[in-house]
Nucleic acid binder design. Structure first.
Length: 462
RNA sequence: GGCGACAUCGCCAAGUGGUAAGGCAGAGGUCUGCAAAAUCUCCACCCCCAGUUCGAAUCUGGGUGUCGCCUCCA
């Protein structure tokens, strides 16, 4: 398996630290708002990464933090005339609801920054003791000059940056690029006691502490997040960890590309934000998933109505072909037929190549075509259906398969439905098109689609 | 200014030296009272120029264009 590693800027063979085990960590949300479609991309993508490792027989431990101490949360609390804690609580709940609706499995660990303040203080003390950090009037900074490998992840050289590039002017800092580890308390802010007085941790320490704690090691396999986190967040995380352990925090650093909205960068000033919550009202979760996976994770991707519509149609096609063969999960006594083994191998090859999900999806469409062209061979088409569901499952599709494949009518009676179909057929014989169309249209409104086929009128749930 | 990514059909997208997958949309046929669904068929020399090579979308150089990071924004 090959993974593009931001640290080396190359695709590399994936070699886990412990055989057959993967320890991965992805940066989670800052809980000050409903998360948007751009935030959703890494959540979905790393969910797929985890699935795929499991599919390939790895034992995966996946941890993700929740940032519940942050300026943005404090500001939001002031804005809403609410408390810091209430805001965090509200949006943690929203985060969990929305990821669940998106069909994203919960990580094995999902700790909050506020749970490990003591450990963060310990980390900062250690950095200070070893000369990587210094205190100025209650603030503690990491000294980038003390860690000679600073910049190794992002490829930035600290002295190279243009003087004009905006770097916070702060006379207390020894070097303009030094970043905050501990912030002195300001009035009205949540604070904790520390050796440097009351204050709160900066953003970059929590991920170091949480990842090492929950993955139970100084250095783990995969660290992921959006490209924007490469610098400064991940650079700074790594600097803290590696300064102390002489090992990179993670061996492989994976970063997903951004999402644009109709060709433009998502931004507050353009007011082109879409929350996952809002999009879920219009499109189903698997259409959103298809949209993310239809392009390689490192590429930028454009969000627009047309694409979402296409994604929606594409996913429906997966289901409709399964419906057409009345798919039922079968227990395979032996391995797949040679033609299907080949398709499975293609899928694995695509995913092994740095998670080429777009290519993997095309294998699913191949299977759709195979199923369509082999409907006469019931056993084989069911077998192909099995593989489609198996591979789709790795990508996180078919979560709703039971519900969609059954023709449960709920409060509509099946008998009444067949009576209506009879009446409509009589009307058709008498060329009473007004009545027959009314029945067809009204049923469609109830989610029942009539299909006039050669073998008579059939129906299916939409 | 520094660092980096990308440019393939109307849209999305695979392809990494051997003569352009797939999806959506579209066109036409079958089926139908009409429609939907289904089904069959059709639909690209790969941003430009030069080079390497028997052979390049794929490699090299140069253009042009788009985008990202350098701001605690995934």
């Amino acid at each position: 398996m090959k993974i593009y590693n931001t640290l080396t800027k190359k695709k590399e063979d994936f070699i886990p630290i412990e055989e057959n085990k993967v320890k991965m960590y992805a940066c989670g949300p800052t809980v000050y708002n409903y998360f948007h479609i751009g935030n959703a991309r890494p959540f979905v993508f790393f969910d797929v990464v985890r699935n795929y490792f499991e599919y390939m027989g790895y034992q995966v431990t996946y941890a993700q933090n929740i940032t519940d101490i942050d300026d943005k949360i404090i500001n939001k609390a002031i804005e809403d005339n609410s408390s810091f804690k209430e805001i965090a609580k509200k949006y943690i709940k929203a985060f969990q609801d929305d990821t669940q609706k998106l069909g994203i499995r919960n990580p094995d660990f999902q700790p909050k920054a506020s749970e490990v303040i003591g450990e963060i203080i310990k980390l900062i003390k250690e950095l200070e003791k070893k000369g990587f950090a210094y205190e100025v009037e209650g603030d503690v900074y990491f000294s980038v000059e003390s860690f000679k490998q600073y910049g190794k992840l992002s490829g930035k050289k600290i002295d190279d940056q243009k003087a004009g590039a905006r770097i916070e002017a702060n006379i207390n800092k020894k070097h303009p690029a030094d970043f905050t580890l501990w912030k002195k308390a300001k009035p009205g802010e949540p604070t904790w006691n520390s050796p440097w007085g009351k204050g709160r941790p900066g953003w970059h320490s929590e991920c170091v502490v949480l990842s090492q704690k929950y993955l139970q090691s100084e250095s783990f396999d995969i660290h992921g997040g959006g490209v924007d986190l490469v610098f400064p967040h991940h650079e700074n995380e790594n600097a803290q960890a590696e300064a102390l352990s002489n090992k990179p925090l993670a061996n492989y650093w994976m970063h997903n590309g951004f999402i644009n909205i109709e060709g433009e960068k998502m931004s507050k000033s353009l007011n082109n934000f879409f929350t996952a919550r809002d999009i879920l009202k219009e499109y189903n979760a698997e259409a959103i998933r298809f949209f993310f996976l239809s392009k390689h994770y490192r590429s930028p991707i454009d969000f627009n109505r047309e694409i979402m519509q296409e994604s929606d149609t594409a996913v429906k096609n997966f289901y409709s072909v399964l419906k057409s063969i009345k798919y039922k999960a079968i227990d395979l006594k032996q391995d797949y037929s040679p033609e299907l083994i080949k398709k499975k191998a293609e899928f694995i090859k695509a995913m092994d190549d740095d998670f080429n999900t777009a290519k993997a999806l095309s294998v699913m469409f191949d299977l759709v075509r195979i199923i369509k062209s082999s409907k006469d061979d019931e056993l084989f088409s069911q077998e192909a259906g099995n593989l489609l569901v198996e591979l789709g499952g790795v990508l996180g599709f078919f979560q709703d398969i039971e519900n969609i494949l059954t023709n449960d009518l709920g409060d509509l009676s099946e008998k009444l439905l067949s009576i209506l179909i009879d009446i409509r057929n009589d009307a058709k014989k008498n060329k009473n098109w007004i009545l027959s169309d009314k029945i067809r249209d009204d049923l469609l409104k109830e989610g029942i689609q009539l299909l006039d086929t050669k073998d008579g009128t059939k129906w299916e749930k939409k």
